[in-house]
């Protein structure tokens, strides 16, 4: 294991024992993800992509195989240790944003720091949360509650929350699933910018359009990787936004 890969999966298996039938959700996935990589995991429902995602996110443990995250073998850790790994090394972005209601954007972003191994002083917490919101361009909305923010803005808050502990890995599960086309492109723009800054991003999606903003695409079928290739004709979010606006303007003119 001399490589400095952020994620290294070796023959990962996951079997669910549900009643009489064993469900073999992931059947031998081996994968290496280098720092700064931006990967889309695709696949139809039942392909095992959610299960793989949960294991990469340290929310679930593989039945067999080995998972090295940032040099730590996490496949053998217990619940509490996994919680700590998630806190320190992984930032989550969900389809449904999953912000705490009636809680300001800033407090939402501060939340992961409450669970840090080393106690972060509350002033430092606020400062880091503010920096995080600045990265996603929402610093001026820090005091707004989620219900005062649009879907795109809520997702940006969620991204800020994922970034606040400076994770090794940003894990996004259908981050654009609840957003319209334009907002989706804006969010992909945020991801592309983060990726350019060297943050490793793994994103699960079933939309090919969205996957084209990433650098590499993995397709799962029946718990196995069937495609693992760089994205050709990669889209640039900024250019796409410009195109979209022109198209909208054209519609209005007509």
């Amino acid at each position: 294991m001399s490589s400095n890969a952020v994620i290294q999966l070796v023959d990962l298996h996951k079997v669910y024992h549900t009643g009489e039938v064993d469900v073999h959700a992931v059947r031998g996935v081996s994968l290496e993800i280098q720092p700064g990589q931006f990967i889309a995991i695709m696949g139809s429902s039942g392909s095992g992509k959610s299960t793989l995602m949960n294991m990469i996110g340290c929310l679930d443990r593989p039945t067999s195989g080995e998972y090295q995250l940032d040099g730590v073998n996490v496949s053998a850790l217990d619940r509490d240790a996994l919680a700590e790994i998630r806190n320190a090394k992984i930032g989550f972005v969900f389809q449904g944003f999953n912000l705490l209601s009636r809680t300001s954007a800033l407090e939402n972003v501060e939340m992961p720091m409450l669970y840090n191994h080393r106690r972060v002083h509350s002033e430092e917490q606020r400062e880091r949360a503010r920096q995080s919101l600045e990265i996603v361009g929402l610093a001026e909305r820090a005091d707004h509650h989620p219900n005062q923010l649009s879907g795109g803005q809520q997702q940006r808050v969620a991204i800020a929350r994922a970034l606040v502990n400076r994770p090794s890995l940003l894990l996004a599960d259908e981050p654009t699933g609840n957003l319209d086309t334009q907002t989706s492109i804006e969010i992909m723009g945020v991801f592309q910018k983060l990726s350019d800054q060297g943050i490793t991003i793994v994103m699960v999606t079933h939309e090919l359009d969205i996957a084209r903003y990433t650098k590499r695409m993995i397709v799962l079928r029946d718990g196995k990787i069937v495609t693992n290739e760089p994205v050709r004709d990669r889209l640039n979010a900024e250019q796409e936004l410009v195109k979209l606006r022109q198209a909208q303007a054209a519609v209005k003119l007509a």
Binding site: L59, N87, P112, Y115, N116
Partner: peptide, 16 residues
């Protein structure tokens, strides 16, 4: 329940 899930995802342990 969802809030508990989020907290656990960002690193809260069962004891927390």
């Amino acid at each position: 329940t969802r809030e508990i899930g989020i907290r656990m995802a960002v690193g809260a342990r069962a004891a927390d």
